[in-house]
Design a protein around this nucleic acid. Structure first.
Length: 382
RNA sequence: GUGGUUGUAGCUCAACCGGAUAGAGCACCUGGCUGUGGCCCAGGUUGUUGCGGGUUCGACUCCCGUCAACCACC
């Protein structure tokens, strides 16, 4: 059974609307995944996620491995049951932590896997491709991804090349282990497995990586190794380059992208799924997304501002809380401040993706994009 | 009333034997953050060194006076 079905295509761009069928649910793409590293979108209750209309989020294998740990997850029968959430769960493999926590990898990375020093207590732990698949099976996510090696930017060609070779090698082992485990399940309860493409900013490496990964064959393809500090032009160059070689009939996931401008761009290039920490992390630090651009609610100019966060938003925060009040909560260190902006920003992203889906269905993706971004950069009403 | 201690940025404190543009943390004001530790990073504003005299080439620093806070004793 095909897990992905395209139901609409934009005529002038590569944007498309699809249905992704997972064992939990069928959900519509383009899809934005808020990040729930430890199984929770920081500060938000599951009831709130449901109310906002969050269909799916992404959790992290590495972090869940340390807390709550395999045993608790096994006891409860996976993350869905542990957190009582019937939406779709993606899991990241820990490959990104090879990059983000690289100072905790004293031995470096080899063919067998990665030896991590726990960021919590410094103890040594070993992740192999097989282990990561097992863990994601224990977590019982709907969509798992292969272990990959994400390298920093900028990176030397030779190092990027080795990471591509390693990522391919690991992808094969992930796929083998995955098939072995999935044999025990009936077809309705199959997890999906996505492969990850590396290659940094080198086009020949990107092409090699995606050919290798597509040859192995996965339920979807993720573009990794971007959003690691490279300039926006390179992000755009790589995403548009890779997208032209990806199979059309499989979901395409660009990992770590979530700035408003980048989101429109990646959808335009034919990507279906993206995830990003920005709406929540920046929300916790005072940045709010509004129809008229980003604002930092901590700025003193909002101290007496009676206007709502985003005059065009209909979330409860924008109905009931003035900018001045949220400013006050932030300056006072009140926890509610973090929640209000997290809620609003996630709401903003969900509404944005609904708008994107709708514009593709109605055949006006490009003009919608232009209109949206023009307003977003106008800084009116701010 | 007498004796003592202390007064330096909004706050807590540095500043050698008298030496150059009086510094730091926090706070405040901005900016940054792209497969998450609420963190962190990068900049920026702020001083009549309680006040007034004096000595000196030069005073936060030494001297005199004065004000304030605190402590002890009457």
């Amino acid at each position: 059974m095909d897990s992905f079905k395209i139901i609409a295509k934009d005529k002038t761009t590569k944007a498309r609307v699809g249905l992704l069928t997972t064992k939990s649910k069928t959900i519509k793409t383009p899809l934005f995944l808020p990040v729930a590293t430890l199984g929770v979108v920081k500060t938000l209750a599951y009831e709130e996620l449901k109310y906002i209309g969050v269909d799916a989020f992404i959790s992290n294998t590495y972090h869940l491995y340390f807390r709550p740990g395999e045993e608790i997850l096994k006891q409860f029968g996976g993350l869905h049951k542990f957190i009582n959430w019937d939406g779709v769960i993606f899991t990241d493999s820990g490959g990104f932590q090879v990059y983000s926590l690289r100072e905790l990898i004293p031995q470096g990375v080899n063919e067998e896997g990665v030896e991590f020093k726990s960021h919590i207590d410094g103890t040594l732990h070993f992740f192999s491709p097989e282990k990561v698949i097992e863990l994601q099976n224990i977590i019982d996510s709907d969509v798992a991804v292969c272990l990959d090696e994400c390298v920093e930017y900028p990176v030397e060609y030779e190092k990027a090349k080795r990471s591509v070779e390693l990522t391919t090698l690991w992808a094969k082992r992930c796929k083998d282990k995955f098939n072995q485990i999935m044999n025990k399940f009936d077809s309705k309860n199959l997890q999906l497995l996505f492969g990850i493409i590396q290659g940094s900013v080198y086009k020949d490496l990107r092409k090699k990586s995606l050919q290798d990964i597509v040859d192995i064959g996965f339920d979807g393809y993720a573009l990794g190794g971007i959003s690691v500090g490279e300039p926006k032009e390179l992000l755009q160059e790589i995403t548009s380059f890779v997208s032209q070689y990806l199979p059309e009939d499989k979901p395409r996931y660009v990992m770590g992208v979530g700035e408003v401008e980048d989101v429109w761009f990646c959808v335009e290039q034919g990507f279906d799924i993206m995830d990003c920490v920005l709406p929540t992390r920046n929300g916790r630090n005072g940045q709010a997304l509004t129809s008229f651009g980003k604002i930092n609610i901590k700025n003193s100019k909002f101290a007496n501002d009676e206007e709502k966060l985003d005059p065009e938003c209909d979330c409860f925060v924008c109905k009931d809380y003035s900018r001045a009040l949220i400013h006050h909560y932030f300056k006072s260190g009140e926890l509610l401040a973090l929640r209000l902006l997290s809620y609003h920003n996630v709401y903003f992203m969900m509404k944005l993706f609904k708008k994107i889906q709708q514009s593709i269905m109605e055949g006006n993706f490009f003009s919608s994009k232009e209109k949206f971004l023009k307003k977003f950069y106008s800084q009116q009403n701010i």
